[in-house]
């Protein structure tokens, strides 16, 4: 036998902790699997010809991507929180808001329930404090 390995991280405890952060969906394997086609659809928008086809008929283009009805609706509504619930990841989804000519700040702000101006002002004021939004269980 080789020497005993270092102490291992308990994967179940690790993954459980990832779900303990308020207002946050960490891109775990479970979400990555759920969002596979949604994210691959978003990647397809890296090609100009695909962006053109998507813009010409969004619904028809989305039908090519094996999406759940909820994921399709979330894209049509540009509801980024709903897309993340469907397993979307913001770096993949950035291809969608870039196709729409939107900035990262506008897209991120749209998930907070704040107006674009309120969100921009919050950032200028030093951003959102971590106070009270570190842990659901701990409440700190």
């Amino acid at each position: 036998m080789t020497e005993k390995k270092k102490e291992r991280i308990d994967i179940h405890a690790y993954l459980a902790e990832m779900e303990d952060i308020p207002g946050t969906r960490v891109f775990t394997a479970q979400r990555a699997r759920k969002g596979y086609w949604l994210n691959q659809f978003a990647m397809s928008l890296m090609k100009e010809e695909n962006r053109e086809r998507f813009k010409a008929d969004e619904s028809a283009y989305l039908d090519e991507w094996n999406l759940t009805p909820a994921a399709k609706q979330a894209v049509l509504d540009r509801d980024y929180n709903a897309m993340i619930d469907e397993g979307g990841n913001v770096y993949f989804l950035s291809k969608l808001f870039s196709t729409d000519g939107q900035s990262f700040q506008k897209a991120a702000g749209s998930m907070t329930g704040m107006s674009e101006a309120e969100y921009a002002q919050m950032m200028i004021n030093g951003g959102r404090s971590p106070e009270g939004v570190r842990s659901k269980k701990g409440g700190y």
Partner: peptide
């Protein structure tokens, strides 16, 4: 450095950290 781009907690900044 500190940043969050998703969900209701987007916009988080932690200067002390």
């Amino acid at each position: 450095m500190s940043h969050q781009l998703q969900g209701p907690r987007a916009g988080l900044i932690n200067k002390d950290f």
